[in-house]
């Protein structure tokens, strides 16, 4: 494998008035074509890390440390230059799908406009690309293309918003709790397509999630985050079966087993 697509070194995020850091000493790197999982509970700083990479931290927070994306340090860039990386280079998929689309413009139009902002192609071509990505997400592409967001179900809107991000063929996709708002079957479809895109374009993916089963199954490397720090990292099997850190142990014990999944001792977790 070649150089990492992105490497985060000693990232620290704190509020401007200088209370204790919300994210501290976070280092991780993702290689081309790799899926890295960042798992942890709410409030552990997963989403803030993602926001720092995107340069979208809230105004009252600042970050230090280095975020190197393809040889350029993003954290040293001005917000304006930083923003140039968004979309075509780094795509992000949020949990809240309702906020992804403007409610009163048809979805198809929003996707083609987004494609055309980043790539110099004609309307027809953009339309075809939009229809293609929508179709790949398992959507009825023609219908979704001509629909307003409120005419579709939540799962459909989320898949359409993922289609919009992936249509730009970014080199790094950050998925922030992408499947949380979807149910298992829809989540599965979306993940399968993401897998396909990854094989096709070789993009790197940072999967932020609290769903352990998903992380075990889909990622190449897992980082466990607790209270702003990465407490453990390793291959999915290592995290699952040979974890060292007590917090990882606690998290893993919380994954309810299906009957017959005997590799996990499903002990009672009373003393959390």
């Amino acid at each position: 494998m070649s150089n990492p697509i992105i490497s985060i070194e000693k990232l620290k995020i704190e509020t401007r008035n200088g209370s204790y850091p919300l994210v501290n000493n976070v280092s991780l790197e993702i290689k081309k074509g790799e899926i890295a999982g960042l798992i942890g509970e709410s409030g552990s700083g997963k989403s803030l890390t993602a926001r720092a990479v995107m340069g979208l931290l809230p105004v009252n927070m600042k970050n230090s440390g280095r975020i190197v994306y393809k040889n350029s340090d993003l954290s040293a860039l001005s917000p304006k230059d930083h923003r140039k990386f968004l979309g075509k280079e780094i795509g992000i998929i949020f949990q809240d799908y309702r906020a992804s689309f403007t409610p009163y413009i048809k979805i198809g139009k929003q996707i083609t406009e987004t494609i055309r902002t980043h790539y110099p192609i004609g309307k027809k071509e953009a339309r075809n690309q939009a229809l293609e990505v929508l179709g790949k997400m398992g959507l009825d592409s023609e219908r979704v293309y001509c629909s307003y967001p409120f005419q579709l179900s939540g799962g459909q809107v989320q898949r359409a918003s993922i289609a919009m991000v992936l249509a730009l063929k970014p080199a790094l996709v950050i998925c922030d709790e992408m499947t949380t708002a979807l149910d298992v079957m829809n989540g599965e479809k979306v993940l399968n397509y993401l897998e396909e895109v990854r094989k096709e374009t070789g993009c790197a993916i940072l999967m932020i999630t609290h769903d352990l089963a998903l992380a075990y199954k889909r990622t190449d490397r897992i980082y466990v985050m607790q209270q702003g720090e990465i407490v453990e990292e390793g291959l999915p099997e290592q995290i699952r079966c040979q974890h060292q850190h007590p917090y990882t142990k606690k998290l893993c014990a919380c994954l309810l087993s299906l009957p017959g999944e005997n590799f996990i001792i499903n002990e009672r977790v009373n003393d959390l």
């Binding site: 298992v184 599965e188 089963a213 699952r240 299906l258 009957p259 999944e261």
Partner: peptide
């Protein structure tokens, strides 16, 4: 019943659900 979860007479849809949730 829960002990028939992996029985081969399960509906394909059920199987897909279990497949989606399982780790392997």
């Amino acid at each position: 019943g829960i002990n028939e979860l992996y029985h081969k007479s399960r509906h394909p849809y059920t199987k897909a659900l279990i497949e989606a949730a399982s780790i392997q």
